[in-house]
Amino acid sequence: MVSCLGRAADISGAGATFPYPIYAQWAATYKAETGIGLNYQSIGSGGGIKQAIARTVIFGATDRPLKSEELEKHGLVQFPMVMGGVVPVINVPGIAPGALTLDGTTLADIYLGRIKRWNDPAISRLNPGLVLPSTGIIVLHRSDGSGTTFIFADYLAKSNPAWRDEVGVSTAVEWPIGLGAKGNEGIANYVMRAKGTIGYVEYVYAKQNKLAYTRLVNREGVAVSPTLSVFQAAAAGADWAARPGFDVVLTDQPGAGSWPIAGATFILLPRRPRDVAATREAIKFFAWAYRRGGNMAEALDYIPMPETVIALVESAWSRQVVDATGAPLYRGGS
């Protein structure tokens, strides 16, 4: 059956490293079902953006969403594919996972070097009844440029003006203090074995390494623990419809049950692709991943996009991605 359609070319993509495991899983399953392969190179978000602009790949992938103007300038459409949550992790003797509660202001002050000890009044105030040691706080951050850092810094900037003005938001920033560790695994490992440390990792690393995560006070003033459902609540609470380029960073989102540090990872497609056939296949793959890939994503501790967002993305495809004659590549509902 597949053979009579002819051998379709593989879909090529490049970019963010964070979603690589789930893209690889989807690609393998999709290949088994349809015979069409996906070749994804996880070269980093920066490279994904560059290659999407240069049109050397069918699609690019990035953790740092491009702004509407940038998308307009380079003739790209952008949409969120899957989400992940970022979790602060600590190693303080005597404090169990989830026992410590922090809020954005305090977390930013720790990363600014203004809160230096674990028993600082700012931390004690959030944790009445918890006995905190007077030891110094060792701050861990990513040494490599990373979408995780982008999401984390965005949260700190939204919750603490000093962070916004003095440090800012990017995939790598000028850290006021602390040690840089390479990758999520580098941070997880250092936090695991060194006492007095605090770091931030993708949820899956906190879970698999059984690290002591902290609870966070969200925008509504509710302290929440990191689970898949609170990450999903963050995505559901966000106002996607108001952003045509879907450039929403899921930090500090409304909703009493929402985790304040989450983020989607994005796909970039050209609006008028040169290789129409391959781009059509790519969109088919993404539509399939939205509809059928949710369980696979959850099994790998990623968070599938909510139904409402998928509908918005599909409508964006059918309006924005067209071939040379102006006919849309995606007509929905396959």
Partner: peptide
């Protein structure tokens, strides 16, 4: 104290340098 070297900086940051 922590520091960095030239090659470590390049290896860390080149992929995500936008």
């Amino acid at each position: 104290a922590p520091g960095t070297t030239i090659s470590a900086t390049i290896a860390n940051e080149f992929t995500e340098a936008v």
